[in-house]
Design a binder for these strands. Structure first.
Lengths: 114, 114
DNA sequence: TTGAACGCTACTGTTTTAGTAGCAAAAATA
DNA sequence: TATTTTTGCTACTAAAACAGTAGCGTTCAA
């Protein structure tokens, strides 16, 4: 079966059986973590709201990421828009400490650039 | 000043002042988290060892990611090869819970694909 | 019934990554 | 010491991912 990649539908997949690598492969794409983060912080969002809250994400990529995150059971698409699934919120809770840490990291980084 | 991007030298930067978004921008690139993960798990590594342990990463991208992670003060390049800085290890420790969680995530995901 | 907003797709061009080959320097070996 | 091997890395080409804009069909309010 030949895969025919079309624009907006990524084809890369993790061959390694390691779950963390599969997760890194999913989250290691542009905006993936940012979308989950924003969605969990602000609650259910529409497509346009997400687009605005995430910064300057293009609709093509936003749509692609949303599909991927939905396939990964991290977000859901109901009548009131997109929202994180329970599992997505679990991941968000594990991301939270990193969010706090990033403040210190940015400080040290700014200091070193003098 | 016109920026002239050359292969292997990414140009994207986080405009948002949010540290977590800057971190996501850094980690949201292919292999970034995998490299830090592997480096912290196996200890100091040479270039070739990293290349082997990470799976199938190409030398161009590995070199680019290593430069970025070094600029971000997360890894260091000493005589005995590459290794995580104290700050990089801090981040790794925050990543660890996600590593554990990814196992359950993969299980649920596999179940849903029947 | 008009028109405005929404969710999304099509399209084109740029940036990033993959994959291979190979060079210069260091290290190992003879 | 001379030769081979390994290492760290760069050059190059092709493919994949992303940005940016335009616009289609639907919904929904005026």
């Amino acid at each position: 079966m030949t895969s025919i990649p079309t624009p907006g539908t990524p084809v890369r997949g993790s061959k390694s059986g390691d779950p963390i690598m599969a997760l890194f492969d999913l989250l290691g794409r542009r905006w993936a973590m940012g979308i989950l983060w924003t969605l969990c912080k602000t609650g259910p969002c529409t497509f346009r709201e997400l687009q605005a809250n995430c910064g300057s994400i293009s609709p093509t990529v936003l749509n692609t990421r949303l599909k991927e995150l939905r396939l990964a059971l991290l977000i859901d698409h109901k009548d009131d828009g997109y929202q994180a699934t329970p599992m997505g919120k679990e991941l968000y809770n594990l991301l939270l400490p990193i969010g706090g840490w990033s403040g210190q990291w940015a400080d040290v980084l700014a200091e070193s650039n003098d």
